[in-house]
């Protein structure tokens, strides 16, 4: 029901959509890569934030859209990645090694959290992931020697790439864009791989997959850890872009925003959640300022509206309209 086009690739004409998709991806990438050349520095910074958040939303989409595991605590791994990368950068190792460290730390935490959460299905999964996210935020708040407590880690040095310090909006943007594209590609490859097919099978009928001999809990845990690692990468990019990591980055509201981005964008495509992320960031940053700090109010209302009005998201609506 959720995405016929992706589950039955053999039933549609092969070449033309493939060419069209490749052209669209190339044009989109080019447009994104050239963005600092035609955007003001402030807009470039906003776009960088959108990319960071978009990667978080896309990694969550692997869980929500492909495996059918809606997580309310995905920002925990985002936060762990951000803290690990920032900690590493503050202690002399910035750039790519810091990102890798962030990914590894996030994957480790996701392994521990997932071992508990994935066993419990359905609504228990929602509750447990919510608890994991909140407890991670609390841990970030109280473990002062590593996380800097409620002040967070600030003054994170800019990433360096073979001696080049990336501290301009445009250079930071290109750095983030490169890893955003790599992360998105990794997620896509995972979803279209043989394991990805198993994951969709679990989403549609876990009992049947188990009867077929798949160790579904283990496969789900693998997906959870992978999504956590990509969220950790996004966290590392956050540390590089924002140069500041606070407990709120790991918390409930960030998780909720990521899930909102996925739900608005629709779970049927990979660009949908990124577009949802763009909308969420624009609402939070731009509109939040004009609303005198009432960003959460606007976002809460957005949640309510989305649930009542577009249960399948922007991407799905467009699909339905263009369908004959």
């Amino acid at each position: 029901m959720t995405s016929l086009a992706t589950t039955h690739p053999a039933t549609r004409p092969r070449l033309r959509p493939a060419v069209r998709n490749a052209t669209a991806v190339a044009a989109g990438t080019l447009l994104l890569a050239a963005a600092p050349l035609y955007l003001a520095p402030y807009a470039t910074t906003t776009l960088t934030r959108i990319l960071v958040f978009g990667l978080l939303a896309a990694s969550l989409n692997l869980l929500v859209g492909v495996v059918g595991l809606p997580s309310l605590g995905h920002a925990a791994f985002f936060g762990v990645g951000a803290y690990a990368a920032a900690f590493s950068a503050l202690h002399g190792t910035s750039g790519v090694p810091a990102l890798l460290l962030g990914m590894a730390a996030a994957a480790l935490v996701a392994l521990v959290a997932g071992a508990v959460a994935v066993r419990a299905g359905g609504v228990f999964f929602l509750m447990l992931t919510l608890a994991v996210g909140e407890l991670t935020q609390q841990a970030a708040d109280s473990w002062e020697s590593v996380t800097g407590g409620s002040n967070g880690l600030y003054g994170v040095p800019a990433p360096t790439l073979s001696g080049l310090v990336l501290d301009q909006p445009a250079t930071t943007y290109w750095y983030v864009l490169a890893f955003f594209l790599a992360g998105l590609l990794a997620l896509r490859l995972a979803a279209t791989s043989a394991t990805g097919v198993v994951l969709r099978g679990i989403r549609d009928s876990e009992d049947r997959m188990r009867a077929l001999g798949y160790r579904t809990t283990l496969v789900k845990l693998g997906a959870f850890v992978f999504a956590g690692a990509v969220a950790g990468l996004a966290g590392g990019l956050l540390a590089a872009q924002q140069r500041l990591v606070t407990p709120a980055d790991a918390g409930f509201e960030t998780s909720a925003l990521a899930l909102l981005a996925v739900v608005i964008g629709g779970t049927g495509s990979w660009w949908g959640p990124c577009l949802g992320a763009a909308l969420v960031i624009v609402v939070r940053d731009s509109l939040g300022a004009t609303l005198d700090g009432h960003g959460p109010l606007a976002l809460g209302l957005l949640f309510v509206l989305v649930v009542y009005l577009l249960p399948t998201g922007i991407a799905r609506i467009r699909l339905r309209r263009t369908a004959p």
């Binding site: 359905g122 609504v123 929602l126 909102l260 109010l297 976002l299 809460g300 209302l301 989305v306 249960p311």
Partner: peptide, 25 residues
């Protein structure tokens, strides 16, 4: 009530939105 036949996730999202609005108010 209008969501009673929809998924847990959508109901959770609705109450989450209400919680965000309530916290801000």
């Amino acid at each position: 009530a209008p969501l009673s036949r929809r998924s847990h996730l959508e109901q959770a999202l609705l109450t989450l939105g209400i919680a965000l609005v309530a916290a801000d108010v």
